[in-house]
Amino acid sequence: MKLHHSPASPFVRKVMAAAILRGIEGRIETVATDPHVSPAALLRDNPLSKIPCLITDDGMAVYDSPVICEYLDTLGDAPPLFPPTGSKARLAAQVRQALADGIMDAAVARRMRFGKPVDEARAAFLDRQKAAVERGLAALEADPPRGLSDIGAVSVGCALGYLDFRFANEPWRPAHPRLATWFEEVSALPAMARTAPPK
């Protein structure tokens, strides 16, 4: 398999963390890709010019990160990251994944506008994204994950890691001590430690 990859992307990190947890990391060849320049190789595989994008062994292009992670969950012999279909545990994991992905979406949107002129409309947009992150963190603090056993927890770990990576000047830990304790514990695990963004 091949994965259009950038170590700075929290969504790519989620896929790689899932692959490690599934014990199939060695089956994935990473291809350095900058989606912002819309390279032909990426456009051939994903017309949206977004990463991550996985090419399966039989040549099928799979995107985006929730879909890729669900596909990876069908491979390998490690415990699944997606609980059984139809279970409350699966629904809870997917909702937590959606919340974490929303935090990442909002944080990436803010990051993409760094250094650009800020008019009233853009300032309002950036404020909305920041508020979304803050509300998402508050929801996670009220009910933090346990361990790194499902796709929701993996997604939360990647979201918090991205906040540390891109918004270190906006520390989230003081207001979210339960979440901070959980994140410190899981950050030492191979799936998180080996996929940490570059410093």
Rank of each mutant, 00 (worst) to 15 (best):
L160G: 00
R111C: 07
S38R: 14
K199F: 10
A98G: 11
L72I: 08
G59W: 14
A40W: 02
G76M: 05
L3W: 13
D143S: 14
A32W: 06
P35F: 03
Q94V: 13
W182R: 00
A18M: 13
E141N: 10
I51P: 09
L21P: 04
Q129D: 12
M60S: 07
P197C: 01
A78F: 00
L189R: 03
R178P: 06
G26D: 08
A106M: 13
D45K: 05
A159H: 01
R90H: 07
P79V: 04
A18N: 15
D77M: 07
A40D: 13
A106I: 04
Y63P: 01
A100Y: 05
A109T: 07
A191F: 02
I20Q: 11
P10F: 13
E134F: 08
P10E: 14
I51D: 06
A98L: 14
F125L: 13
T30Y: 02
A18T: 13
T181C: 00
R178S: 04
K2S: 12
K14M: 15
P35Y: 05
R111S: 07
P39E: 00
V67R: 10
P197Y: 01
T56Q: 08
K116T: 15
D143F: 13
T30R: 03
R128S: 15
V186N: 00
K130F: 13
P84S: 09
R113V: 09
A8H: 10
G136F: 14
D150N: 13
L99D: 03
T56I: 05
D101T: 01
D58L: 11
T195E: 03
P174V: 00
I68P: 00
P83I: 03
D101S: 02
R13S: 13
A131G: 14
T74Y: 02
P198V: 12
G76E: 02
I55G: 02
K116G: 05
L148R: 08
L99M: 06
E29F: 02
D150L: 14
R27L: 11
M60A: 11
P83H: 11
P190T: 00
P197I: 02
M104Q: 12
P66L: 03
R128M: 11
C69T: 04
A142N: 12
R22W: 05
I151Y: 07
P79A: 06
P79W: 02
A124L: 08
R122H: 10
D45G: 05
A168S: 06
